[in-house]
């Protein structure tokens, strides 16, 4: 599956899709989108890259094996829930910054939760797909 058109297209599509996925993630609280969809779009970007350049290149690009993303994401989600507990509130109480940022709006604990979900979804999807691709190459 070494097609020049695909490779060239991927060169442009990968950053674009990744950017798009982050965009979807960040706007999730105000417009349609969110961690799940964002994560899936990002995964698709990497899958596309692996189709074009082969699995090894993609894995190099990622630097860390995809399964290491999972605990990072889980921890982030979890910590976003724990954070309010330092302020004496119950687990997962929402807390927000006072001033809104452009595009994202108010930065709150929910945003970090969503980012955690985003990372977990990328980790899970890529782990599954890469493991399968690897086993087929053998």
């Amino acid at each position: 599956m070494q097609s020049t058109i695909l490779k060239t297209a991927t060169n442009y599509l990968l950053p674009l899709l990744l950017l798009f996925s982050v965009f979807i993630l960040l706007r999730g609280h105000y417009e349609s989108g969110g961690g799940f969809v964002g994560g899936l779009v990002a995964s698709i970007a990497f899958v596309l890259h692996s189709f074009a350049y082969g699995l090894e290149r993609t894995q190099k690009l990622l630097k860390y094996p995809p399964k290491s993303f999972i605990p990072v994401g889980l921890l982030l989600s979890f910590m976003s829930g724990v954070l309010p507990m330092f302020g004496g509130k119950a687990y997962m109480t929402g807390v927000w910054s006072s001033e809104p940022l452009p595009v994202i709006g108010l930065v709150g604990s929910a945003l970090f939760f969503d980012i955690g979900v985003f990372i977990v979804v990328i980790g899970v999807t890529l782990t599954i797909l890469f493991t399968i691709s690897e086993s087929i190459d053998q």
């Binding site: 609280h29 997962m92 929402g94 929910a110 939760f113």
Partner: peptide, 20 residues
């Protein structure tokens, strides 16, 4: 919850533990 996309707010805030 300071969010306008209700579906997303339910997922990450109201029912955050479920999503976790």
């Amino acid at each position: 919850a300071k969010g306008k996309n209700v579906v997303n707010v339910i997922l990450v805030d109201f029912r955050g533990a479920d999503t976790m």
